[in-house]
Design a protein around this nucleic acid. Structure first.
Lengths: 177, 177
DNA sequence: CCTTTTCGCTACTTAAAGTATCGAAACCTA
DNA sequence: TAGGTTTCGATACTTTAAGTAGCGAAAAGG
């Protein structure tokens, strides 16, 4: 399977040394086959992340429980072998690649943004801010240290974010809407 | 000046298309001269960011004012032409380059971390978490949209972070120390 | 069994990081 | 000013990786 080969190669070699040729070799296919199915390395990684993440488990009845479970879920996913590296790597590539940025935003972020908007009843810009904070924090730690965030800090992130979003209804915060 | 040429080239072409050759051409020097002074493109960018940032202005007497001014300062810096792209780009490169990660952590992050530890009286892991949240959020927005965070969202970031860190003394939060 | 589609392989182009070398220019020092 | 030293510019090179082209073999499906 190409996705499994992608994650294990990224895990073993890091993002930029996980070349398409290496991934293809591990997957037992030819490099050209990869490029027949995905237009670029970035698009492959995004699809691989989509496969690895799956849908958000929006567990819990209260807004606080929903947010807490979502944060812990994405933190755990980022901590999985290869996933954090792949995520941070493709994100980095997107910085100077508008086409990849569009893929990342449309294919990866939007589904989760919409699910969160629906579950939390928050407007788009608030959910985008929520994602910026949560994902940005996790990726910054990953990028700076090479290691995923430890549980204690994920808990701190939950305790930082949840009261801000759950502590008041959106209408109470002028900047929210 | 090489730093000015670096920022303007990154601003014009984006991070990965701001090649060392282009930067050198804009600066009016030879590529080899760049490589005589900096061991890698990443190291050049880090020194360029150090030059662009300068020291943290730790204005304000209260912890809340200190944090608020620091957040708005770094947000404004990230919004300057070329700075955000350069920051996000070098950060991305560091993901799969341990040597660059070390340069980034030691030369760029540590001075600000130490200044904040001193000014806020928070332990290292708390300040690192603070930096993860603030810088991670700003860079995630920059990376996802290609644009720096607007003022309203910077204000939201201040209102998210400051109460968490300033609302109680560190000892009140078991996870902090 | 024949057609159509997919796949593997080899070879190629292009781009960018980083290196080597050499001669010229700038800069001290007397 | 002359001689030595260090720095710089220019050219050319190596290496790595993304992405492409084209061909022949192997499936797949009627």
């Amino acid at each position: 399977m190409v996705f499994a080969a992608t994650l294990s190669t990224v895990h073993e070699f890091g993002y930029s040394r996980a070349t398409v040729e290496r991934i293809a070799a591990v997957a037992g296919v030819a490099k050209t086959t990869i490029y027949r199915r995905w237009p670029s390395k970035g698009a492959l990684i995004v699809d691989c992340l989509l496969d690895a993440f799956g849908p958000v488990p929006l567990a819990g009845t209260s807004r606080a429980e929903l947010m807490s479970s979502a944060i812990r879920w994405i933190a755990a996913k980022v901590g999985e072998a290869g996933v954090g590296d792949a995520f941070a790597g493709v994100f980095s590539d997107a910085v100077s690649d508008p086409a990849l940025r569009d893929i990342l935003s449309t294919r990866l972020q939007d589904p989760y943004r919409l699910a969160l908007q629906d579950a939390l009843g928050e407007p788009e810009n608030r959910v985008l801010f929520f994602i910026d904070v949560v994902v940005g924090t996790l990726l910054h730690r990953m990028g700076m240290t090479g290691e995923p965030m430890v549980d204690a800090d994920v808990t701190a992130l939950v305790e930082l974010v949840v009261p801000y979003f759950a502590g008041a209804t959106p209408a109470d915060r002028p900047r929210g809407g």
